[in-house]
Computed example of a mutant assay.
Amino acid sequence: MKRLSTLSVVLLASCAATGDPDNIETKSGDYGYQAQYRDIEVSRADAGFLKSARLNSEICLPYRGGAYGTKVSGVANTLLGERLSRNDLVEVRIGNDEDLGGNYVVSRDGTLKIPYLPPIRAQGRSTADVERDLNTILVEKQLYDTAPLVSVRVMDVASALVGVSGAVFEPHQVELGGIAGDQRDVGRQEALGASTEARNLSAALRATGGVRPDADLSAVELRRNGRLYTLDLRGVFQGHNMVDVMLLTGDQVFVPSRQCFQDDLMRPSPVSPPGVTVFMSNLTQPATGNAISAIGRNVREMPYGTRYLQAILDLNCVGGARASSAHRSGLLLSRNPMTEVSVAIERDIEDMLRRADRDDYDPYILPGDAVACYDSTLTNVAEVARVLGVIGVGLLLNE
C-alpha cells in the first residue's frame, strides 16, 4: 500500500496549476498584434472599458492614400473595363472576308497574330482598341481601299497568372479565371462576349487568403507592364463600390501594411478571407470523445470576425453543471502575421463570461488559429481518482 500512497501524492500533485503560457507578445507589457491579447489579470477598476480598438489604432501608420475620397495617383482609364490577356480566345470578323476572319488566341507575347498582317498588340487592351488597329493596318497594307467593318469579340476568357504579396494571409502567385491552363469553356465559346469576374482584383485577394487586419487599403499597388497604379479599396468597407479592376497575366499586386491591427477590417467583405478554419481540441470530460461533442473534423469553419469566446462556445467548452464544469480555461494558439512569431494566450472562461469589459480581452480568431479546452479542477481531480483506482487495482492484483 506504500507504493499506492506514494503514487497518489504524485498524481494529486499533477492537479496543481502549470502556470500561464509564456507569451512573447505580452511578456514585455505590450499587447502585440491585437490589443485584445493583453493580460486579463487586472481589476475591473484598472481595466478601463472597451478601449482595445483605440489602443490598436494608436500605433497605426498614416494612410498612404490620404483621406478617403481624395484622388489616388496612378489610376488611369487603361485599368477600367474588360481587357484582353494572354491565351484569351477571340473571334475576328472582317466584312465577308473568310480568309482573314476566324478564331484566334492572344499569343504568349501578348499580340494577336492574323495571317498576312503584322502582330497587333492585344495584352491589356480592349477589343475596341484592337479593332481600330486592325482597321488601320488593313488600309495601310492596301488590302482594302476603305476601312471595312471589323469586329473583335471575346469568345472565352483564359486564366491569368498574377502575383500577390504584402499584407495578405497567404501571399503567392495565383491562377485566376478560366478552367485550368489551356482548357476551354466550350459553353462560353458558343456565345460571343464572354466575360468573367474571376479575374478581378478582389478575386486575387481572396485567393491569397484575404487581406490581413493590418492592411492599408488606401494604396493597394498594381504593377502592369512596368507601370505602377495605386488603388483605394476602402470603399468596400464603407458601402461603396471599390475599384475592382480586371487583372492580366503578369500583373503584380502588393498590399501595404499600416503596422497595426484594425478592428474595422475584421468583418466579411469581397477582399476579406472567405471564412476562418480553426484547429480545435475538446475536453477530456465530460465528453468521452470529439465525435460526441460534434467535432468530427480536424478543423472547424467559422465566419470571419469570430472571437475567442465564440470559438470556445462552438467547441462545447461552456455550460454544463456548474459544480463540476465551472472554471474551465481555453488556450488560443495564433501567429503574428507580421512577425511570424507564435502567440499563446490562456483565458479563464468563467472570468470572460462575467466581465462587462470582456471584449477588450476577447481576441479575434485569425485563419489557421488553434483553440484548446482545459477541464475544470474538479474534473481533473476526478480523473486522477479514476486513474488511481485503475492503477491501485492493478497493483493489488500483482501482489
Rank of each mutant, 00 (worst) to 15 (best):
V245N: 10
G210L: 10
M242Y: 03
G210V: 07
L217S: 02
Q238E: 15
A215V: 02
V220Y: 06
V236C: 11
N225R: 14
V245A: 14
R234T: 12
M242P: 04
A219M: 03
L231N: 09
G235R: 10
D214K: 00
L228K: 13
G209E: 04
S218N: 07
L217W: 02
L231D: 07
Y229E: 12
S218A: 04
D244C: 09
D214N: 13
V236A: 15
V220P: 02
Y229M: 13
V220S: 05
F237P: 00
G235K: 07
D244L: 13
L222I: 12
A215Q: 00
Y229L: 06
R234C: 12
V245G: 12
A215L: 05
R224Q: 08
G235M: 07
V211W: 04
A219L: 02
V220W: 05
T208N: 03
D232P: 06
G210A: 09
G209I: 11
N241V: 09
E221M: 10
N225G: 15
D232M: 12
L228Q: 13
N241F: 07
D214R: 00
R212L: 03
R212N: 03
L222D: 01
F237H: 13
G226C: 07
M242W: 05
F237G: 02
L222C: 05
V236G: 11
G235N: 05
T230R: 14
V245I: 14
L231W: 07
A215R: 01
V243H: 10
V245S: 07
E221K: 14
N241L: 11
P213L: 01
P213E: 01
D214V: 01
L217F: 04
L222W: 01
L217G: 04
G239C: 10
T208D: 06
P213R: 02
Y229S: 15
T230V: 12
D232A: 13
G239L: 05
V211Y: 03
N241E: 15
G235C: 09
L233I: 05
G235H: 07
V243P: 13
D244R: 09
D214T: 06
A219Y: 06
R212P: 02
V220Q: 07
N225H: 13
R234S: 10
A219C: 01
N225A: 15
L217N: 03
G209Q: 05
L231Q: 08
H240Q: 15
Q238V: 00
